[in-house]
């Protein structure tokens, strides 16, 4: 079967130490103020004054680009720079094709993309392609103290990731408006899960019009077509939306 790299995460073991974030930042030279990955937290809401009387455990949730099988960012890209790599199932950006228009940034429900401030291309997680080329695991996976992030080809039944998926219930986090079919699986339960946003239309259109009108001519038609597709993604997706209690669960 085709390779589909994925991350299977036992978020209940995350201690929110931020090792994955710093490891990623160093490995991929992510500039100050930007991140390719994150740890979200469902600590009790402090606005609730009586919270202390009914203590709920905290839950920390590591994340990053979900390398979706139905990626809204790919549809949003006018130049084909953002693509789903058929060889490993990862969603990647081809720097040479990327014009930095940024359409893909709001098109991602997970906030996994940013425009690199000096390279002027869009940057995101590629499951540490260069490390994998050397036979190493992604930096965040290797460094994690509690090994909460388990990485592998979920279509290879021998991989740890596939076995974990097989042996456990898992959930994916999606926005109700579109099932992007993310390849980041959380074991049993995770929180928070209501944070993805509806894939948006890119503000960047305005930006590009102002900055470099000539580019508009080149990519305009392309972009229009892509936008139509994006619109289709958003409006016509009939996949089951997932909310807190109705996340698609995969059982073995």
């Amino acid at each position: 079967m085709r390779t589909q790299l994925a991350m299977v995460i036992d978020s209940s073991t995350c201690i929110d130490c931020k090792a994955c974030m710093v490891a990623c930042k160093v490995e991929n030279q992510v500039p100050e103020g930007y991140w390719r990955n994150w740890v979200k937290s469902s600590e009790p809401r402090y606005a609730d004054v009586d919270w202390m009387d009914s203590v709920r455990p905290a839950h920390f949730q590591p994340g990053g680009c979900m390398h979706c099988s139905n990626p809204t960012c790919v549809s949003a890209c006018p130049t084909g720079a953002t693509y789903k790599d058929e060889s490993d199932g990862a969603v990647k950006v081809n720097d040479r094709l990327c014009i930095g228009c940024g359409y893909c940034i709001p098109a991602c429900p997970y906030g996994a993309r940013y425009r690199h401030p000096t390279r002027h291309v869009v940057d995101k997680c590629d499951f540490c392609q260069h490390r994998r080329d050397r036979g190493e695991l992604p930096a965040c996976v290797t460094t994690c103290p509690t090994k909460a992030r388990v990485f592998g080809d979920i279509n290879n039944p021998k991989s740890d990731a596939a076995q974990l998926l097989k042996q456990n219930r898992s959930i994916q986090i999606v926005h109700e408006s579109v099932n992007t079919q993310p390849n980041m699986y959380y074991l049993s339960a995770t929180a928070p899960i209501n944070w993805p946003v509806k894939p948006g239309k890119p503000d960047a259109m305005q930006f590009w019009k102002l900055i470099n009108p000539s580019i508009w001519g080149v990519v305009g038609l392309n972009a229009l077509g892509v936008l139509l597709m994006l619109g289709k993604q958003i409006l016509m997706s009939h996949d089951k939306p997932a909310a807190d209690n109705s996340s698609p669960e995969k059982e073995s």
Binding site: C17, A19, V22, A23, V26, E136, T143, P145, T146
Partner: peptide, 26 residues
Amino acid sequence: VTKLDPNPRFLKSRGMLCARGNAGIQ
């Protein structure tokens, strides 16, 4: 030095490196 990774043979640290360890490069 471009990256610090955990030494998996180092049992005391259970093959991990925390945020500060990763930031040793800085």
